[in-house]
Computed example of a mutant assay.
Amino acid sequence: MTSDAPGRARALAHPDRAEIRLEQVLHALADPVRLSLVRTLADAGEELPCSAFPVPVTKSTSTHHFRVLREAGVIHQVYRGTAKLNALRRADLDALFPGLLDVVLAARRDQESPARSGA
């Protein structure tokens, strides 16, 4: 990890692709707020600042959710100026766990569909 020396961008720790573990990814995706963050990133298809996410939690709780996603290898975060931008690590996740992200996101959409029948 790089230092926070003046003139250098702050760097955040991210696992390398080989360090991403299925149990950590599943844990990160198990929380409804974090899953919503991932779905927003997947739908956007581009980097988004933290302020672009409509989350029903405090800023400190939101920061925690982003950190869990980053440390699990689900997202990549980078500082650009004063903004922290977030990107989905789709290529890494698809390479390690083919189809997982698509299935999880599709299941979430199906659960939220108004046409979904009751159990």
Rank of each mutant, 00 (worst) to 15 (best):
R8F: 13
D102L: 12
D92W: 10
S62W: 04
A95L: 08
G118P: 09
R39M: 14
T63C: 11
K59D: 14
R39L: 15
E46Q: 00
R80K: 12
V68D: 07
T63A: 14
L12N: 00
K84R: 07
A87L: 15
A28F: 10
G81C: 14
V74F: 00
Q111N: 07
R109G: 04
L105W: 00
D110K: 12
S113T: 14
R90T: 06
T58D: 06
A52P: 06
A44D: 03
L12D: 04
A11F: 14
A11I: 15
V38T: 01
A91V: 05
D92L: 07
L48P: 03
T40P: 04
V103A: 15
L69P: 00
F66S: 02
P54D: 04
R34S: 02
G99Q: 00
V74N: 04
S51V: 15
R17D: 10
F53V: 14
L100A: 08
P56S: 12
D4E: 14
G81P: 09
D94S: 01
L105P: 01
D31I: 01
L96M: 04
H76S: 09
Y79A: 02
H65F: 00
A91P: 10
R80H: 11
E47T: 09
A13K: 03
L69E: 01
T58Y: 01
L69I: 05
A52Q: 00
T61I: 15
A87V: 13
T40C: 07
Q24N: 09
L69T: 01
L37E: 02
P98V: 14
E112H: 12
E47D: 01
T82D: 09
E46L: 04
D4K: 15
A42V: 08
P32T: 03
N86C: 06
A72E: 08
L26V: 12
S36V: 11
V78M: 12
A11K: 10
D94F: 06
T61M: 15
F66A: 04
A9N: 15
F97N: 05
V33C: 12
L48K: 03
G81N: 03
H76D: 07
S36I: 13
G99V: 00
P15D: 07
P6E: 05
A44Y: 08
